[in-house]
């Protein structure tokens, strides 16, 4: 055996070991991600319980189940993967964030998703919110204004098999006329006002949810409901139980 062959052999052996190692690591990652995800869901459930009646009602089992299924680590950049199941918002590049799982759960819950619902999402971001909704409703339409995010999310959702999510790059202000009216609309991007066309595209009896606050700190959720008569009402819903006066718990 000449030295060249030796080198090749050793190299091949090393490569094999590396590949085996990688696949083992990957399996280990998968199982540890699953465990972390289940811890995350338990944390979200606990927080929702602690928030109590500020939310009106407890987070539905189906929403928590969806949170337990969707692989959040697939929706964050590699550098953030190890934090994927921490219950906090994470930067995903382009100045955007993936929302805190707890807030995603609350928002999804407020939409009162039903398996026959058609939902519009403004601000696809990483695609995580759409993925959570995917298992709870019939169809999700999602619009993103930042081109690389839109393309990445589209590819990701397709790769992960979220077939009932349709995304496009464009202006969310005018909703998605050809698929309107929507049973619910979730706006994940901040705006100075609620676009009137979105209110128009909400079906009577439908709900719209918008998080209020900065990218890393949601202050409260704005819930808009269109009554069967077409009247619009709104609620400011706190994510935590907090009374602004001392001595009034």
């Amino acid at each position: 055996m000449n030295s060249c062959q030796k080198i090749c052999q050793v190299g091949a052996g090393a490569l094999l070991a590396l590949l085996l190692g990688l696949s083992w690591t990957s399996r280990a990652d998968e199982s540890s991600f699953a465990a972390e995800r289940s811890d995350m869901v338990a944390e979200v459930e606990l927080y929702a319980l602690l928030a109590g009646d500020t939310m009106g009602e407890a987070v539905a089992e189906s929403v928590l189940a969806s949170l337990g299924i969707v692989e959040r680590h697939e929706f964050v950049p590699d550098t953030q993967k190890r934090f994927a199941y921490e219950n906090r918002p994470l930067p995903i590049g382009h100045g955007q964030t993936i929302s805190q799982p707890y807030i995603v759960a609350l928002m999804t819950n407020l939409l009162e998703p039903d398996k026959d619902d058609i939902v519009l999402e403004i601000g696809t971001g990483s695609g995580y919110q759409a993925a959570i909704l995917s298992g709870l409703v019939k169809q999700v339409y999602s619009i993103e204004i930042v081109p690389p995010l839109a393309h990445e999310a589209e590819a990701r959702l397709e790769r992960l098999g979220y077939d009932n999510v349709t995304t496009r790059l464009g202006d969310g202000y005018y909703g998605w006329e050809e698929h309107a009216p929507f049973d619910s609309i979730v706006v994940t991007a901040a705006a100075s006002h609620v676009p009137p066309p979105l209110v128009k595209q909400l079906r009577p009896g439908g709900r719209m949810v918008i998080p209020v606050g900065g990218r890393f700190m949601t202050q409260q959720l704005l819930l808009i409901e269109k009554t069967e008569q077409g009247e619009v009402k709104s609620w400011q819903i706190a994510a935590v139980r907090f009374v602004p006066l001392t001595g009034e718990h």
């Binding site: 928030a51 219950n87 707890y102 807030i103 606050g213 900065g214 949601t218 202050q219 994510a239 935590v240």
Partner: peptide
């Protein structure tokens, strides 16, 4: 300062804005 213990405890539960 008097509110900090409460708001700090709530920070991860949706209370960061407080």
């Amino acid at each position: 300062w008097s509110s900090l213990p409460e708001t700090f405890a709530l920070r991860k539960r949706g209370g960061a804005g407080l």
